[in-house]
Amino acid sequence: MSNLAFNRHSVWAIYKFEMARALRTLFQSIIAPVITTSLYFVVFGAAIGARMTQVDGVPYGAFIVPGLIMLSLFTQSISNASFGIYFPKFTGTIYELLSAPVSFLEIVVAYVGAAASKSIALGLIILATAALFVPVRIQHPLWMIAFLVLTAATFSLFGFIIGIWAKNFEQLQFIPMLIITPLTFLGGAFYSIDMLPPAWRTVTLFNPVVYLISGFRWSFHESADVSVELSLAMTLGFFAVCLAVVGWMFKTGYRLKS
């Protein structure tokens, strides 16, 4: 077989293995996000939202739905994918992956595909939960799906990088907790950046998460902090950067091979 061929059996084996891992803990993987989402709606939607009428002409409860989905999508994609590759490194079973006749792209497609599948499913579950609390309208369903898939894939890829980079469990948690979650909260998950004073708004525009959330929110409400094209371009750009980094990691064996 040539190096360039696509080895579907290998990809399928890894994908299935990763999905089986998730299915074993199906209950936690579904129940936890459903509870969290419900809590957000109780706190932000009912308690605070009752005092805030509308944002950009959308009821506050409905306004936060895309942000909420994105928040889970970011954190779950990262944790799924980083754990998926970190764990074999930790237990030593990575030897098998490294000795298998698979290319880096196949490994990435399988691991990132599995992690993204899981977080897409999760995003849809959160959307369904949200629909129980507030009327959710999606203006551009196809764009919504496109952003959902692209974001899940991008952050899974990012998580994959973290999983390769991490030398211990603390490092595995470090970036999601200390960087992604704050940036998401400050990136307009729960408010429109138009609501900020001008100086802060400028600062906020340096937060890449703003661009990622904005396009997704636009697909729901047609209201956006930045243009859809910019949002899409930023997401694709981030995806490309992550892919390049993973490619480099496999080429040099960074923290995978000695």
């Binding site: 080895n7 290998s10 992956l97 698979v102």
Partner: peptide, 20 residues
């Protein structure tokens, strides 16, 4: 170094698939 939660059958079948 082996997986922990998988069955013997699953892990051996996985290896076959992984090798294409």
């Amino acid at each position: 170094s082996t997986d922990a939660f998988e069955s013997v059958w699953a892990t051996v079948s996985f290896s076959r698939g992984l090798f294409g």
